Amino acid sequence: MRRSERKQIDPDLGIMAGQTLFAVQKELFAALAREGHPHLKPRHGAVLAYLDEEGSRATDLSQQSGQHKQVIGTLVDELVELGYVRREPDPQDRRAKLIVPTPLGLDEMERSDAIVAAIERRHAEALGEEVYTVFKRAFRQITDLQRAHPSTSVAGERGVS
């Protein structure tokens, strides 16, 4: 049996996680486009998915998303240009900046949360609430274990301990 056939019959964790991510992103961003946010791309999720309504520091967004701070900076620049966020001084530390959603950003965040909640409800209905709850708990544990692995940390990728 060829490797590609094996991977189709019994996909590994990476393949299943990737397929799930890409399918959810495709549905989410198509729905967002229909609801007035046609310029957003899945890459913007590294900021918007983790952004607090009152604002977040780029370093926190980097840590939560697993993206390098430079990548987050580029995405924030794009989102500023698109009108979704603005940079403001952090009242806790004037040297730092907060990435704060604009009214357009808040609208996207609210719509995105509702769309993802609908996707999750659909899966819970298809599998049954109990099975879906167990699945999410197990998937969360796997995600936490994988993120805790030393070779997956952002600092580990740069060779910094």
Rank of each mutant, 00 (worst) to 15 (best):
L48A: 07
V160E: 15
L104H: 06
G159D: 13
I15S: 12
T59A: 13
E53K: 12
L79H: 09
L75G: 00
P38M: 04
A23K: 15
A118F: 02
L106F: 06
A124W: 08
L98P: 05
E110N: 06
S153P: 01
A17P: 00
R137Q: 10
V100Q: 03
A118L: 08
S4F: 08
S161C: 10
L40C: 04
K97S: 14
D12K: 09
A124N: 10
S56M: 08
A155C: 03
I9V: 08
Q64D: 02
M109D: 04
Q19E: 14
G156E: 07
I119R: 08
R94T: 06
G159H: 04
V24M: 12
L127H: 10
L106Y: 00
T102K: 09
E53W: 09
T133S: 14
T20W: 15
Q146I: 04
G36H: 03
L32S: 00
D10K: 14
A138C: 02
Q64L: 14
Q8P: 00
V131N: 02
P91C: 07
L98D: 09
L51R: 14
H149R: 11
R2M: 00
G14K: 14
S151I: 04
A155H: 05
P150N: 02
G83F: 07
R43T: 10
E125L: 12
A49K: 12
K136Y: 06
D90K: 04
L82F: 05
Y50S: 01
G36V: 05
Q19H: 14
V24L: 11
E157P: 01
I119P: 01
T152G: 02
D90H: 03
V131T: 15
S62F: 05
E129M: 08
I115M: 04
E88N: 03
E27K: 15
E110S: 03
P11W: 10
Q67M: 14
P42L: 05
G156H: 03
L104S: 09
A49C: 11
R95K: 13
E54P: 00
R3Q: 12
A124C: 04
G128P: 07
H39Q: 12
M109N: 04
R87P: 02
E108A: 13
E54Q: 13
D93Y: 08
P103M: 06
G128V: 12
E110T: 08
F29P: 03
M16G: 00
Q141A: 13
S4G: 10
E110R: 12
L145N: 14
E27H: 11
P150H: 07
L40A: 09
L40R: 06
T59P: 01
A114E: 13
L127S: 10
L32F: 10
K7G: 04
A46I: 03
S56I: 01
L104P: 02
Q146E: 13
R86I: 08
V134P: 07
D93T: 00
T133C: 03
L32M: 15
R87M: 12
